[in-house]
Design a protein around this nucleic acid. Structure first.
Lengths: 185, 185
DNA sequence: GCATCGGGAGAACGATCGTTCTCCCGACCG
DNA sequence: CGGTCGGGAGAACGATCGTTCTCCCGATGC
């Protein structure tokens, strides 16, 4: 296994375990066992657990931004449909087995008070979500406040879907988003 | 200091420290130092940390339900104003210094995957919030789906206010709630 | 005054954490 | 073929955790 493959395996495993059990409940030894990457390699790839946590979050941040953009681009029907498409993406996500909420919301809850880098990553990630909506509402000529409201719906849906284990909040949020967008036009 | 005063002091201190640093980052010794209650008393009041965590969350759950009901009852203007009053309560809460988000969302993020009792308490707490909105939408003759949507807005506001540190999401959510309620009548 | 007992301070214990070190094997180079 | 070196397995280390135990003091009852 070369360095790239090991790094990928570590990031995949860490993302899954952190999501399932929380960050602090996953020891480096558990990560070693689950990933099959030795402790020595693990520490030469990521010099500390903090660095690894940050790397996992950064990769996840990029993946979400790409997935969101890709989902929006698939519907070429203009900003109205692109804004609503975000909630379809949420629906797909929530339906995944073992979905346990947004990694940034969860990690912020666990570490946001003591790890400023984690708090900052969560802030940036949520700002990116808001910016996605803002791009669509701007194109619609709707006020920027609408983008904030759509972001609230999306984040609320993530929380409620995570806590209740139901994917329904995605559809509920989409219906609410449609009402809000229609009212702003 | 008698038993009642000690229990109160422990619960107050634990709630504050858990909120500031997360549950796992607060050791029983830190709790002892901050509360001034000896380890011996602490363990005879709460036989384990798990029990203490659950007690803190149960008390917080009751306090939120009471505060929400009290805030709603203060405006006797009927269900329309009572539904919107919830967002005024959010605004007061978000403006508190050191506000760091909803304890149930944060604790679920940290422990929900490995502590089923914590996950259950979070579920019950969020169901109570939804039920508050459902009581108002029922009285308005609006469909129950509206209550779910208002709950999404409220939870989204808690998350975004916690992560960004701004109290603005309360007002944004209130404005969105008004549009949704008006559209449903 | 003396014995009893609850409670405070904090040491002690076993477990586990993040991190480093030791030992050893197998691949590559001359 | 002999030597060098990267990497794997896992022991070791110091710190910290949740929990329990020891020791001692002060109040209370007779």
């Amino acid at each position: 296994m070369d360095a790239e493959a090991a790094e990928l395996k570590v990031l995949d495993t860490a993302e899954r375990l952190f999501d399932e059990r929380g960050v602090q409940a996953v020891g480096m030894d558990a990560l070693r066992t689950a990933s099959g990457v030795s402790l020595k390699r693990l520490y030469q790839l990521f010099p500390s657990k903090d660095v690894l946590v940050e790397a996992v979050l950064r990769r996840r941040d990029g993946a979400v931004r790409e997935a969101l953009a890709a989902h929006g681009a698939r519907v070429a029907d203009g900003p109205y449909e692109r804004a609503l498409a975000a909630f379809d993406w949420l629906a797909d996500w929530f339906a995944e087995p073992d979905f346990r909420g947004c990694a940034f919301i969860n990690t912020f809850g666990e570490l946001g008070g003591v790890a400023p880098n984690v708090a900052g990553l969560a802030r940036d990630h949520k700002e990116a979500l808001r910016a996605y909506f803002a791009a669509q509402t701007d194109a619609l000529g709707a006020p920027p406040a609408l983008a904030d409201q759509l972001a609230l719906l999306a984040n609320g849906a993530m929380v409620v879907a995570g806590i209740t284990g139901s994917p329904e909040p995605a559809a509920q949020a989409k219906a609410a988003a449609r009402v809000l967008i229609d009212a702003a036009r």
